[in-house]
Simulated assay, not measured.
Amino acid sequence: MSSTPEVSVVIPTFDRPELVTRAVRSALAQTVTDIEVIVVVDGPDGATRAALAAIGDPRVRPVELPVKGGAPNARNQGVQAARAPWTALLDDDDEWLPEKLAVQLARARTATSPMPVVASRLINKTPRAQFVMPRRLPADGEPICEYLTVRRGLFHGDGFIQTSTILAPTELLRRVPFTVGLRRQQELDWTLRALAHDDVELVYAAEPLVLWHQDEDRPRISLNSPWEAQLEWLRGMRPLLTPRAYAAIVTSIISSMAAPTRSVRVFRMLLADARRHGRPSAVDYLTFLQIWLIPPQVRHTLRDRILGRRRPATAPTASAGPVPPVASGVDAAAPTPAVDRPTDVHA
């Protein structure tokens, strides 16, 4: 490995040695070989330390933090340690396909801004099916905040960005760090704050380059985040959102977190907030009502039927080469894919 690698890979983890080993090996299997893999261990963790040492590759650089600080802090610490001009983020429960970095670096060279954020499609693997996300790429002139949040269908969204798909200049990730303490919407929060800078643009690689595993038997802490905290975060993000985007988040994401309260007061408050600060569409109103009135499992079944999902006979692996055809769709377990990623299970 050269003294200055081409790409630094940052993987936050804690107490999941088998998963992080899988993620690290998918990074080491990239066709771009001049990389360093910075594994930020979020607190004392002997099992993970031993698992990383057993990999036996000098490109792996463990960074063990003295105390737990959550995934956003761990990512920030990894970026500070990065030596390459580009940094790629990888969650410890995801995998990359071998061409991921090569495709994204080529896409970055075609960008028109000096600080391109390069995302990609991914293959979402759930217990029921696997399918490609996002369903479509941003249209010319479409506000990114609306692409990532506004629904075109009652039971699904189209836009999406996820941490493990992001490649960005290391300088930009240092200029715009992840928000420490934010337990959900981390990708949306970071992307919108980064795009607020005039020299930044978001571009996509059309190929699915990441395997997003959602069938692991592990806790989903972020799914239990209090809705009040997320509404406070959203109100702070209003300057970076259009009224359409604001309303879409309130009527889908915030409502999906608040609906289990079955509170008429909360129902009315969120509807009033979406109307006061946003511009809800007919789809937003219908989404809001179905989230509050239809049990989640019934919604998931309806969504699967509408999108025509079926379980594939075989599943791709990070070493499987070309990606086989999969159904196009969005996460059946998430109310809106753009901002409901179950992240930070170790936060």
Score class of each variant (00 low, 15 high):
H156Q: 05
T21G: 15
M237S: 09
A245N: 07
T191H: 04
V37N: 04
T317P: 02
L293Q: 12
T343N: 10
D140R: 15
E64L: 01
V298S: 01
A272P: 03
N124V: 03
P243M: 01
D15N: 14
V339T: 03
R174D: 03
I35F: 11
A245F: 09
W96D: 01
V67G: 11
Y204T: 08
D284P: 13
A81Y: 06
P5K: 04
P296D: 10
A82F: 09
G46M: 08
T13K: 02
R235P: 00
P72H: 07
T314H: 09
V298M: 08
R175M: 07
P66H: 13
F288D: 00
A82K: 09
D344V: 03
M269G: 09
I294Y: 06
W227V: 02
Q77V: 15
L28C: 09
E18K: 13
R135H: 12
Q185N: 06
G153F: 07
C145A: 11
V330G: 14
E6M: 15
R83W: 08
Q30R: 14
A247W: 02
A334C: 12
V9Q: 05
D158I: 11
D45H: 13
A318F: 07
A54T: 14
A119F: 07
P143D: 10
S26E: 02
R175K: 14
P12D: 07
I161C: 00
D331L: 01
A318E: 02
F14S: 09
E146I: 14
T87P: 03
V9R: 04
V283H: 12
L173K: 00
W96A: 05
V345C: 09
D199Q: 15
L148F: 12
P114N: 05
A332G: 08
R303N: 04
R59F: 13
R341Q: 14
R262Q: 14
T33R: 15
V7Y: 06
P312S: 07
L137C: 10
F160M: 05
L271V: 01
T242E: 11
D340Q: 04
G181T: 15
V150M: 09
A313H: 05
L65G: 05
A258S: 05
T343G: 14
W233K: 04
R135L: 06
E6V: 15
V132M: 03
V24W: 07
F178V: 00
A347Y: 10
P134E: 04
V266G: 10
V63A: 15
A23S: 15
V132P: 00
G308K: 02
K100I: 00
G56K: 10
P98A: 13
L240H: 15
